[in-house]
Design a protein around this nucleic acid. Structure first.
Lengths: 225, 225
DNA sequence: TGGATACTGCTTGTATACAATCCTGGACGA
DNA sequence: TCGTCCAGGATTGTATACAAGCAGTATCCA
């Protein structure tokens, strides 16, 4: 594997995990030295991140970790809506859909757990489950271009999750919405699957916008558009 | 503007316009010399084209103009379907939609012209009209990320158009389908607009696959997946 | 004192030099 | 004759050197 690829993945992780905060200036010399590579592969990585939208390159001034603006988040969720609802459509048309039945059961289980636990639930396993669903949707859609675009959007989602408060009520609702998507896909109900996905994305956006709009976040990190 | 950007746009045009045929190996030294730049900005451009899917970079072996495979075309049209139908949805929800009324009239005019002329019609003006519609859809969607993805997909479409035979019957149908999309958007009929766009993309794909599958094309240029 | 301006240092953009990797051709041996 | 292996050349990947442009500061003038 090339150094440029490694640098790309590493920087992407650091941005998504908030080790590099939005707005920070990415000095090429300094970062290249920190990662132990020269500026050449680093610049390659920065350009890729720019295309992904995680970094904004201002010609002549340098690269900055992209800000999180409310309007931008909404726009990206629209893209997510378009891609995600189309992908589950394709999944619902696929031949082998039994795995979505299993996933539905798992999501229902988690929903009950959230309903009962009321906040005291450890949700790391839940995010592993949503990742499994994401992976199955990507694979079920059987379209590499669609999968790539979805993967890119999901990076932004991961970054947002770190600042969106996970309220227990929302978690239970989220699990229920996921279960509904799985059920529709499993049943081959294309329209219903797309609608369920679309509504889930919409609810997810509203939840995140509420979290961002509230003072919950570290203030300066979030530009209010 | 940076040299890298200029090189990127120039190479993209050369690929889309078939001056660089699918499969050709893009020797860095040679092309850099031809374009009068060093390898550094050229490599930056090649990586961007790789992300766009117009170039495929094979690590250690170099960059190649991407092949046109039937399966890949189908996949890309699925992406186009997802994006276009979502974009027209957004347009149908927008406040100002009168321009789509004007576009509908123009498309209907062209449809009649194709119906009457039967092949003898000069279609350059028609493609200008579809470009206008594309631009209006991008603007009406009011989402830069969606517009970017659409723009990327449309480059592939432009490349394909050069080998897809324009049969007069298909042109008239295409104009009618476009008119239907415009009418639905103008009327604010979201569902109908999305359905019309989706069907248009599907028909467009079928037409292109037929043209690719037939022996019409320059044989070796098209890999049959 | 306020503002405009030239200067200095630093950062990015580009070119070139070096290192590592991959393809090609041919010789050798089974 | 066919397959394998080695060497040479060429090409990509990385590092460094150089040039151009921006930012911040201090200075000068009104």
């Amino acid at each position: 594997m090339k150094q440029g690829d490694l640098v790309y993945e590493r920087l992407r992780e650091e941005i998504v995990e908030w080790e590099l905060a939005p707005g920070t200036h990415l000095n090429e010399t300094r970062i290249a030295a920190r990662l132990g590579v020269s500026r050449t592969p680093l610049r390659e990585a920065l350009h890729r991140l720019d295309r992904d939208g995680l970094v904004r390159i201002s010609p002549g001034r340098g690269a900055f970790v992209s800000e999180i603006a409310l309007g931008d988040v909404a726009h990206r969720f629209q893209l997510r809506d378009a891609l995600e609802s189309y992908a589950v459509r394709l999944c619902a048309r696929a031949d082998e859909r039994s795995v979505f039945g299993a996933l539905e059961a798992d999501f229902l289980e988690w929903r009950d757990r959230f309903d009962a636990g009321a906040g005291a639930v450890d949700d790391t396993g839940y995010y592993a489950l949503t990742s499994r669903l994401d992976a199955e949707v990507s694979q079920g859609a059987a379209n590499p271009h669609l999968s790539d675009s979805l993967a890119s959007v999901r990076q932004h989602l991961r970054r947002l999750r770190r600042i969106a408060r996970r309220t227990p009520g929302r978690m239970a609702l989220s699990a229920g919405e996921h279960a509904r998507i799985c059920a529709a896909v499993r049943a081959g109900a294309e329209e219903e699957a797309a609608r369920a996905a679309s509504e889930h994305v919409g609810n997810s956006l509203r939840h995140i916008l509420a979290a961002l709009g509230g003072s919950a976040v570290g203030g300066s990190a979030v530009a209010l558009d």
